[in-house]
């Protein structure tokens, strides 16, 4: 009886770990394929390319105007990060500290953009942007990316602010700190770790945000991920390897920030579920 139990247990565990292993191995191999291909000269009917080269990177850089694309990407991402902090953190503070009529409505408004897929609201939003003349411009891309980012910052920050004891602020007031100095000397240092975590997550998510940028960007306001999409979409035109080189550049940009982010946040936060929302 016991021995049978243990055997079934072992079998079940082995099956599950094999499944996980299979998934992880394929995932890593899939990523490795892109990297290997980007460094290979010719890769046909063999396990590895015939020889190694760096020339695809030079080719990709000039063919896809990666200099401009990267610059645009960083401008967009930086603007989105800064603006979502400016709008998101004060809102999170108010929602964490006050109960007011309409609070539930405000929370609903902040939750919805995270629950509705970007394509659904991205298309009407792109329509409005194009009609107001912002469509295709960098400003339009930034505005569109704020829609999921601000709620994200708010939802990450609310629990963080709630766990800061309000008596600390009261104490600062008792000792004569005005609103400005309270913010500068008391709140800012306390909030900094949470703000940084939230912004790093926004940063990683914005670099990878395809749909909204895709729907609102014009030729001069493409970010890296959208440029990559167009390159893959029109893959007959360019050498596969230079597209792969571009993919590796995109991957490195994302991974560097992901690794930085992972030093400060729990990986599950990238999935974007504020704790205990269920």
């Amino acid at each position: 009886m016991q021995i049978r139990h243990r055997f079934v247990d072992r079998l079940w565990a082995t099956a599950l770990w094999t499944l996980v292993g299979f998934f992880v191995v394929n995932l890593l191999a899939l990523i490795a394929t892109v990297v290997v291909s980007s460094f290979g000269t010719r890769w046909l009917r063999s396990w590895l390319p015939a020889d190694w080269t760096l020339r695809w990177y030079a080719a990709a850089w000039s063919e896809f105007q990666l200099g401009d694309v990267l610059l645009t990407t960083f401008q967009v991402v930086l603007a989105v990060v800064v603006l979502s902090a400016v709008f998101g953190v004060p809102a999170a503070y108010a929602l964490a500290r006050r109960d007011f009529p309409g609070k539930r409505l405000a929370m609903l408004l902040l939750l919805l953009p995270m629950l509705v897929p970007p394509v659904t609201y991205g298309i009407p939003l792109a329509t409005v942007l194009y009609q107001s003349g912002l469509g295709g411009s960098m400003a339009g891309v930034i505005l569109a990316n704020l829609v999921p980012s601000i709620p994200f910052v708010v939802l990450v920050m609310i629990p963080f602010i709630e766990q800061i004891d309000p008596r600390v602020e009261a104490a600062a007031r008792v000792f004569g700190a005005g609103t400005g100095r309270l913010f500068l000397h008391v709140l800012l240092p306390l909030l900094a770790p949470g703000v940084m975590a939230a912004l790093l997550l926004v940063l990683v998510r914005t670099i990878a945000m395809f749909e909204l940028t895709f729907l609102t960007a014009g030729p001069t306001s493409q970010t890296l991920v959208v440029a990559l999409y167009y390159a893959v979409f029109a893959s007959g035109v360019r050498a596969v390897q230079s597209i792969d080189a571009m993919a590796v550049i995109y991957m490195s940009v994302t991974l560097v920030w992901l690794l930085i982010a992972l030093r400060f946040v729990n990986p599950t936060q990238l999935v974007g579920r504020s704790k205990r929302s269920g």
Binding site: L30, L228, Y229, V232, A247, Y250, M251, L258
Partner: peptide, 20 residues
């Protein structure tokens, strides 16, 4: 490791799939 495909996004995964 599992966070990787989420952050890399569908475009990159598709590109990798075409090769792999």
């Amino acid at each position: 490791v599992l966070v990787l495909p989420i952050t890399l996004g569908t475009v990159l995964v598709s590109e990798g799939m075409l090769n792999y």
